[in-house]
Design a binder for these strands. Structure first.
Lengths: 127, 127
DNA sequence: GAGGGGATACTCGGATAGGACGTGTCCGAGTTTGATTGG
DNA sequence: CCAATCAAACTCGGACACGTCCTATCCGAGTATCCCCTC
């Protein structure tokens, strides 16, 4: 039960893209160099962010990645959901949502954390 | 990033032990039968709960497991920590606790969930 | 000077490999209870 | 009737097998930009 390193990389990459938001896209090599990760691995992570609609990619020379949409709306939860998936942290009693009291407690605890992550926008840290 | 099934089994087992708290300990076979798990596997989970000081075991015939200490004080977080460990869900920037803003946000989000799990006692569900 | 053809820089996707971890089983050892048996 | 012995029930711990996911790398393919060369 831990957040994957990929989520960590994704958060740092997104924060960097938002903080120094340029007109031209940023190459994966530059992003990878900042965090000491291999560019090929980081590109896999960025592909997930693209599929989630958080960033857009530009092919070819001078290509790279750029934040898509409004930067002010991107929250921690958006990025985490893009990498970890949106399924619940706790799966109970086989099939799913019965009236299991344990399940209800775990679900509300998870929602408490998600509310915190949803209310914190990345742009708040990019001052 | 998911809670393990073992945590699920542990929570259900503890709730059962607290709800029907008998004078004599409950055997692992009876506990395993309730949840459809193999007794040998459940005994591994119970060993972790014993080491955490939440239950105590009695060897020999008519042996089994019993809740240790005050039943009113056992929270969800106690059981989760016993199985998942107490390490943080998020490990940032290599070594550890620098002044990484992302790390701070993730930590406070995690604490929001843990507060919820700490305040919910198992005995509240065992009516 | 204008247009076309490479070289270059970059992303995209699949295949692959190693390692860690969760899940589950099996077996031998130690321990307590209770019944059985012999004096 | 008492006590010693034996069998049964049960937990404990380690070893082991299996699958899955994370992490990371490599390679080929596609694509856009820029430079150079030719007409």
């Amino acid at each position: 039960m831990k957040y994957s390193k990929a989520t960590n990389y994704a958060l740092h990459t997104m924060l960097y893209l938002i903080a120094i938001a340029p007109d031209r896209p940023v190459g994966v090599q530059q992003l990878a160099e900042k965090q000491g990760v291999s560019p090929t691995y980081l590109s896999k992570i960025l592909t997930k962010l693209v599929k989630a609609g958080l960033v857009e990619s530009a092919s070819g020379a001078n290509g790279g990645y750029r934040v898509k949409g409004k930067k002010e709306d991107i929250s921690f939860l958006d990025i985490i959901h893009a990498l970890e998936g949106t399924t619940s942290l706790f799966e109970c009693c086989g099939s799913g949502d019965e009236r299991c009291v344990i399940h209800q407690v775990m679900l509300s605890a998870e929602e408490a954390m998600e509310q915190h992550l949803k209310n914190t926008k990345l742009i708040d840290l990019a001052k």
